[in-house]
Amino acid sequence: MKVYVLFFLLLLACMCPSLAQGTYENCCLRYGSGMKNSIKKKVVSYRIQQTDGGCNIPAIVFKTKRSKTFCADPSQQWVQDLMNTVKQGN
Rank of each mutant, 00 (worst) to 15 (best):
A13N: 03
V61C: 04
L12M: 13
G53A: 09
R66P: 02
Q21Y: 13
N26M: 14
D81N: 15
I60A: 00
V43M: 08
K36N: 05
T23G: 09
S67I: 06
N37H: 14
M15I: 13
L6I: 15
E25F: 11
K87V: 10
K65V: 07
C71W: 02
D81I: 14
S75H: 10
G54E: 02
Y31F: 11
S75E: 04
E25G: 08
F70R: 06
C55M: 05
K36M: 09
I39L: 01
E25D: 15
V43C: 03
V86D: 02
Q21H: 12
L82A: 07
L6C: 11
V44P: 03
K41R: 10
I60C: 08
N26C: 12
K63C: 05
Q49T: 02
Q21G: 07
Q77S: 14
C28H: 05
L9V: 12
K63P: 00
S18L: 14
A59W: 04
V43F: 00
Q21A: 15
W78P: 07
F7A: 14
G22C: 12
V43D: 00
M35V: 06
L11V: 12
V79Q: 01
Y4Q: 09
K41Q: 04
N26E: 11
F62C: 08
F70C: 08
N90P: 01
T85L: 06
T23L: 13
L82Q: 00
G32Y: 03
K87L: 09
Y24P: 02
Q80L: 14
K65Q: 08
K68L: 10
S38Q: 03
K63L: 03
I48N: 08
T64F: 04
A59I: 12
C55G: 06
S38N: 09
F70Q: 08
Q77H: 15
M15F: 10
L19N: 09
K41L: 03
G54P: 10
L9H: 02
K65M: 09
W78R: 12
S33K: 08
M35R: 03
D52R: 14
L9K: 05
A72W: 04
K68D: 01
I60N: 00
C71L: 03
Q77F: 13
R47T: 14
D52P: 00
V61E: 07
R66V: 10
I57N: 04
V44N: 05
F70A: 08
Q88K: 15
R66L: 06
L9Q: 00
K40A: 01
I57K: 06
L82E: 00
L11P: 03
G32N: 07
K42C: 01
A13C: 10
M1N: 07
V3L: 11
I57R: 06
Q88W: 10
D73K: 15
V3E: 06
D73M: 13
M35G: 03
K65L: 12
S45N: 12
G34H: 02
M1L: 08
S67T: 11
V61R: 09
G53F: 04
G34C: 02
T51I: 13
R47D: 02
S45A: 15
L29I: 14
M1P: 09
K36G: 09
I48R: 13
T85S: 14
P17E: 03
